[in-house]
Simulated scan of single mutants.
Amino acid sequence: MKKFIMVCLSALTAAVFLTGCGGEQQPSASSSSGSDKGGKIVVGLDDNYPPMGFRDENNEITGFDVDLAKEAAVRLKRDVEFKPIDWSSKEAELKSGRVDVLWNGLDITEDRKKNMLFSNPYMDNKQIIFVAKDSPIKALDDLKGKTVGTQSGSTGEENINKDQTLKDSFKEVKAYPDYIAAFMDLENGRIDAIVGDEITGRYYMSKHPDKFEARDLAVGDVTSFGIGFAKDNTALRDEVQKVMDEMKADSTMAKISQKWFGKDITK
Rank of each mutant, 00 (worst) to 15 (best):
N159R: 13
K171C: 07
A193L: 06
E213L: 09
K2L: 15
I256E: 00
Y204V: 12
D67C: 02
Q25A: 14
L106S: 14
N115P: 07
A235P: 03
D141H: 08
G228P: 12
E91W: 10
D163E: 06
S33L: 08
K231D: 08
I191A: 01
N115E: 10
I129F: 03
T252M: 09
D245S: 08
D245A: 07
D245L: 06
A139R: 13
C8K: 02
T266H: 01
G226E: 11
F183P: 01
E172G: 03
T62N: 02
M123V: 12
D100K: 05
K70E: 08
K37G: 06
F225V: 04
A182Q: 01
W260H: 02
A139I: 12
D107F: 12
V195W: 11
F229W: 05
K242S: 13
I160C: 06
L9M: 05
G22T: 04
E239V: 10
K167S: 11
L106N: 15
K113F: 09
E91D: 13
K3L: 15
A249D: 00
T165C: 09
D197S: 15
L166D: 06
V131S: 04
L217P: 04
K95D: 12
K174E: 07
D178G: 09
E213R: 06
N233G: 07
F183A: 00
D221R: 13
L166N: 05
N58F: 10
